[in-house]
């Protein structure tokens, strides 16, 4: 009797542990959830990833527009959760347009991005520099010094450099088009660093022969 009883309990517990039968993928539920969240205005930051020749890229947006672009998804999302809102959700459909434009840029069929931008992750001087940089066209290069002059602070090349380093919108705001005054490639924070910068410039048809990747 004890044996039968123990087996009965064992079977009951095993079935409880196994759980009920579940139909349908959780992915569908999550898609519906993100839609509901957006309708209620509580999807503060949405993101999606997209493949590219220089590695997977994450694009994040608020209701204002694209707010951040980056390579390291987890790090980027953690940063956005602190800087903007912890209500960070994946929403591929809301980023359809941005993902498509990104793919076109890498195909070479798009020379400039036409996306609403949320500049809220950058302020003051740095925002001014980045907004000026956003007007530098595909396939052209400027130096840190040029850019400093263009924002009427000719002596601020170094500060321009740090504005580049803090660019929350690489690719869309083309910090890869900024080189050092001596002609060296300079640094790059995205992807694999300077090799990614070189790849992007070659992709845009810039001749990099004779340029080193380090500063003089």
């Amino acid at each position: 009797m004890t044996d039968a009883n123990t087996n009965g309990i064992g079977r009951l517990e095993a079935e409880l542990r196994a759980g009920p039968t579940i139909d349908g993928a959780v992915g569908d539920l999550l898609e519906t959830f993100v839609r509901h969240a957006a309708e209620r205005g509580i999807a503060d930051v949405v993101f999606a990833t997209t493949p590219s020749p220089v590695g997977e890229i994450t694009i994040a947006a608020t209701v204002e527009g694209v707010v951040a672009v980056g390579w390291d998804t987890d790090r980027l999302l953690a940063k956005l959760a602190v800087a903007l809102s912890p209500r960070v959700l994946e929403d591929r459909s809301r980023l359809d347009d941005a993902r498509r434009q990104m793919a076109e840029y890498f195909d070479g069929t798009r020379l400039s991005f036409d996306l609403p931008i949320d500049w809220s992750l950058t302020t003051g001087f740095r925002r001014g520099v980045l907004q000026e940089l956003a007007t530098v066209p595909f396939g052209t290069i400027v130096t840190y010094k040029d850019l400093a002059e263009r924002v009427h602070s000719p002596k601020a090349a170094r500060a321009v450099g740090s504005a580049m380093a803090a660019n929350p919108l690489p690719l869309v705001v083309p910090c890869h088009r900024v080189l050092q005054s001596g002609g060296a490639l300079g640094n790059y924070g995205g992807g694999d660093g300077p090799p990614t910068k070189a790849w992007l410039l070659r992709h845009e048809g810039v001749d990099l022969s004779g340029r080193g990747s380090t500063s003089f």
């Binding site: 759980g19 579940i22 999550l30 999302l77 953690a78 959760a81 602190v82 912890p86 959700l89 994946e90």
Partner: peptide, 21 residues
């Protein structure tokens, strides 16, 4: 410092769903 809600979903959505079913 809260983690992005996406991480909370990723870690728990399946279990919450099982619990509800």
């Amino acid at each position: 410092n809260l983690p992005p809600f996406e991480a909370v979903l990723r870690d728990n959505a399946l279990d919450v769903r099982r619990y509800l079913v």
